[in-house]
Each structure stands twice: as C-alpha cells, then as structure tokens.
Computed example of a mutant assay.
Amino acid sequence: MIPSHEPHAVPGTERGMMVVVVGPSGAGKDTLMALAARHFRGRHDVHFVRRVITREHDAGGEDHLAVSDQGFVSMEQAGSFSVWWEAHGLKYGIPAEISVSLAAGNLVVANGSRSALHRFQAVFPRLKVINVTARADVLATRLEARGRETHEDIMARLARGPLTVRGNYDVVDLDNSGSLEEGERRMVEVLTDCLAEVG
C-alpha cells in the first residue's frame, strides 16, 4: 500500500507555471493536448509532461511510462513524483523532475484529474487549470463511439458527473463541442496566454 501523506510546495518553482488539463471522458482533452504539444514542439519554454501510470503502454490514449503497482510504490517512496493520485483503479504520477523546468520559468502542461487538483495546488505556487468540456450530447456520442459502455450507462454517468471544477482554482473553461480545428485553436490560445503571464 502507498503511504498516505500530504504534498508540499516545491521551493523555487514559482517562476514557471503549472498547467493542469482536466475534463470528463469524451471531452477530448488527450487529443487537444497532443495537438498542442505538436504546435509548441521545439520550444524550450513549453514542456508537456509524460505521466507514469500503472497500465500497459499500448492501452491507448496518451504516451506514458507504464509501471507495475509495485514499481509505482517504489518510485513514490523514492520521491520520484511531485504529485500522484489514484483514479479508476489506476495510479498516476507526475515526475518530480518537472521542478527543474518550472524553476527555469517555463510553462509545464500535464494531464490531470479534477479530484487531484488540491494536490497540485499544494505543490505548485502558480497553477492554472484548463477544464475541457463539451455538451452532454457530444460527450454521449463520443463515448458511444468507443463501444465500452451501453447508452444507458453513458447517460447515467453524464447525469451524475458535473462538468465544472469545484474549488478555489484559476480555471479556464474550454468548450470542445465543435470541430477539432476549433478545439486546437482554443487550446493553443489559452496556452499562449499562459506563456504571456509567465513571461
């Protein structure tokens, strides 16, 4: 079992900005992050985090470092994560070395979870949250296309899952109900604004 402890602020990271992208399944946050990473490729001041996750590397979705449960525990005990959390039976970790990039005044972008935002806030002095959402009918269509759940299960999940971020965070809402091009343009705009804040 992973020992429970509260995260604490990382000294020296206040120069840069930590951006955490959150959103419900089907909102398209993974896709928008991949497109934004391609757009900013080659820039030394924008860093997209490769998460450590206890799932197979070829399980689909984002490019991540796959580890076993025991491997994750060992990494956590060694101080390898700045933030980690559990969701849907998996463990997720943000590598501690991102503090170097933040200390250099860079923008660091990570795929996160609304349930873990308090952990990010405790660690990173400058935190921005991008909440990727979409209309309920769009979410339902995208989730049905995955074929993992029945229509009834999807509608029940959407009915009980709020699309907003609760808590005292600096949040930018990004509606990704439209075309992929529109979503990419908006994501790039938000991150460009974040860069201007850091600069």
Rank of each mutant, 00 (worst) to 15 (best):
H39D: 00
A87G: 10
A110G: 02
M1P: 15
S68P: 15
F124H: 02
S82T: 14
H151F: 07
R51Y: 05
T192V: 14
L32D: 03
V198K: 09
H57S: 14
R126N: 14
T13S: 12
E76D: 11
E182V: 11
V100Q: 08
I98T: 11
G199M: 09
H39L: 05
L127W: 03
N111S: 13
R119V: 01
R148L: 04
E144G: 04
F72K: 08
R160A: 13
G12M: 07
L143S: 03
A140R: 02
A36L: 06
S99C: 04
V10I: 15
G60F: 10
G178F: 06
A59I: 14
G167K: 06
R43H: 00
V188D: 08
P162G: 10
V22L: 05
T150M: 07
H8P: 00
A66S: 05
E197R: 12
A34H: 01
V129K: 00
A156D: 04
L102I: 01
Y92F: 11
V83S: 02
V83R: 06
L163Y: 01
H118G: 11
R142I: 01
L35N: 00
G16C: 12
A9T: 15
N111C: 13
L90Q: 08
I53V: 15
D173C: 05
P95K: 06
P7K: 06
K128F: 03
M1D: 14
T13C: 08
E62I: 15
M33E: 00
G42F: 12
D69Y: 09
I53L: 13
H151T: 09
P95I: 10
L191Y: 04
L158C: 09
D170N: 10
V171W: 03
E76K: 14
M18C: 12
L191V: 06
E181Q: 04
L174N: 09
P125F: 10
